[in-house]
Every structure is written in C-alpha cells, then in structure tokens.
C-alpha cells in the first residue's frame, strides 16, 4: 500500500487518487507534486475544494496563464462534489488542456461515479489508498514506514507500536516519524516502551473483557484510560451489559455445538466460544448480581447519578467481586 506512493518521475496528465485513507492520499499528492517539480520547477498548484465551488471555476483554473507555466489542478473530495463541479470535470475530460496535470481525489461512495468512469476510460493513473483497519494492515504500514526511512525495527516493536497508538493512522505515522528522528540503530520493543510505555488502546470492549474475566485492576486501569481518551461511559455500560447478557444466555443453554447454539441464541459462533471460556468462575447468582449492578450503573450514567465514571467503576468492582464468588 505505501509502495503505491512511489511514483515514477514522469507524471501523466490525469491522476485519480482513490480510497478512504486521507493520510495515504495526501502523501500520494505530495509525491506527485514533487515529481512534477522535477520537470517543471515553476509549476502552479491550484487546489479545488468541493465546498463552495462555483460553476465554471475549473475552466478558469485550467486556461493558459500569461507566462505559460505548467499547472497542476488538485480536486479534493470528488465524493462530495456538487453537480456543477462534476459537470465541469466531465467537460474538461472531454477536452483536456496541454500543460495541465489534473489530480482528482475520491474518498469513497457512489457520488461522482461518471467522473470516475470517464477518468478511468481516459486512462488516468489510478493510485489506491485503501483503508488501513486491521492490526495486520497497520503492522504492514509501520514496517513500510521504517523501510522507507531505511531503519530497522523488530517485530515486537511493530506490535507494541500498533497497540499503543494504532487507533488513528495519522497518529501512527507521526509516532513512526518521531522514532525515526529521535533514535539511532535498530528500534526494538524497549525503545517503543520508552516512548509510548503504559499507553494502550482502551475501548469499551477491552474494559468489559477484563471485567468479565474478574481482573479488577486491569479493568479499572483500562476504564480510566478509555475515559481519558474520550470514550463516553454510556457505551461502556452498554458493552458490559451485552457481555453479561451473552454469558447468561450461553450459560443457560447447556452443551451442544457452538454453531447450533449460536443460531439458536442469535449470536455469532465465536461469541458463543468466547462466552463459554469466560463462563469459568461464574455462577448464576453471581451473574444476576452483576447484571443488576450494570442496570443501576446505566441509570446513573444517563443522568440519574452525579458521577458517571464512578458509577461504571462501582459496577466493574461488583462484577469482578461476584466473579468467582459462587
């Protein structure tokens, strides 16, 4: 994916940068412009934003200037382009102008499909910027970043980095840049620990997993972390309730193949397996107390109590206490 950013020196007159990952798209545009400046250092770069676009403006931008220097027109966000902008693009594609490089960015969705099709038909170069979502993709991204900077990074270090700052690709990229700039030699897990130690991506799900497993300390630490990075207590309570509900359902369903059970209970098979593992240490009365504690917390986080975070903490403590008690 990052390889797609490497553009040969000769830039074609039409380029389509397509895909939802902003950071990669930005980089692609930057490197295109750099390549352009190799052949024509005076190139005039014009950015066109879809918001507030006035019909005909594109025509003005592409018309030859007094000194006849090359032009690069970058159209941002074709996926939210107005009809006027789309029509102007189509008109331009029907009759392109020499000395102009047109770069069109398209995030996702169906909007601007005719422009996309026409671009592809006119044999524009297509640069893909696919969404980086899974941990595996993120690890690949990090590896790519360090390879580009000609630095070595160990596998553990990649893993630790993704876990610490992997939520947002931009954040991940700047963390990579920081490590490249500030350190020397091979980057290993210790180095990552020094820079990003103690930082973990905390979501409601991780909080709930820890709570249901009876790990009070871990659950509270994750909760504090999640709240500090801006996760609202309300969804955390919802996730806690959902997990306990699944435990109760699976616990009452008895033996049987997890796929059959999943169908019967309206859950995914992996959820059934996970609930079965988590059921270790839980008793019926324990679950009952835990569910009631979560219901009380839900009322408190929705305005019934004074301190929403405390309400969740108390629910978590009740859950971890009842775990293993019966």
């Amino acid at each position: 994916m990052t390889e797609s950013v490497d553009v040969p020196s000769r830039v074609p007159p039409l380029v389509l940068v397509s895909g939802p990952e902003d950071l990669l798209a930005e980089r692609a545009v930057d490197s295109l412009l750099q390549d352009l400046r190799v052949s024509s250092p005076e190139v005039d770069v014009i950015d066109v934003e879809p918001a507030g676009y006035e019909a005909g403006a594109l025509g003005v931008h592409v018309s030859p200037s007094l000194f006849g220097e090359d032009k690069a027109v970058v159209v941002h966000g074709l996926h939210e382009a107005t009809d006027a902008l789309q029509q102007d693009l189509l008109d331009y594609l029907a009759d392109p102008v020499e000395h102009v490089t047109l770069v069109v960015l398209h995030g996702s969705g169906n909007r601007g499909k005719r422009v996309l099709d026409t671009l592809k038909k006119s044999r524009a170069r297509v640069i893909d910027c696919p969404a980086v979502k899974s941990d595996r993709d993120k690890a690949d991204f990090v590896t790519g970043e360090f390879r580009r900077a000609r630095r070595k990074i160990t596998q553990d270090a990649v893993q630790a980095l993704v876990e610490a700052v992997g939520k947002d690709l931009r954040e991940l990229a700047s963390a990579c840049t920081q490590l490249v700039d500030d350190t020397t030699g091979t980057i290993d897990a210790d180095v990552v620990e020094r820079y990003h130690g103690g930082k973990v991506e905390a979501t409601g799900f991780r909080v709930a997993d820890a709570a249901v497993a009876g790990e009070a300390g871990e659950a509270l630490r994750l909760l504090r972390h999640a709240v500090a990075v801006g996760v609202d207590p309300v969804p955390i309570v919802a996730v806690l309730a959902g997990q306990l509900r699944q435990l109760a359902k699976v616990g009452g369903a008895g033996r049987g193949r997890s796929t059959d059970l999943a169908r019967e209970l309206g859950m995914a098979p992996w959820q059934v397996d996970k609930a079965r593992r988590a059921l270790n240490g839980w008793s019926g009365p324990g679950l009952a107390t835990a569910i009631q504690a979560v219901a009380a917390a839900d009322e408190e986080v929705k305005g019934g109590g004074r301190d929403p975070v405390y309400a969740v903490e108390r629910a978590i403590l009740t859950i971890t206490r009842t775990h293993g008690s019966g």
Partner: peptide
C-alpha cells in the same frame, strides 16, 4: 436506561 437491561435487572 436501555429497556432490555432494565427488564433483565
């Protein structure tokens, strides 16, 4: 409060 959760409790 989420109705289902309130009913469960």
């Amino acid at each position: 409060v989420a109705p289902l959760l309130a009913l469960e409790a």
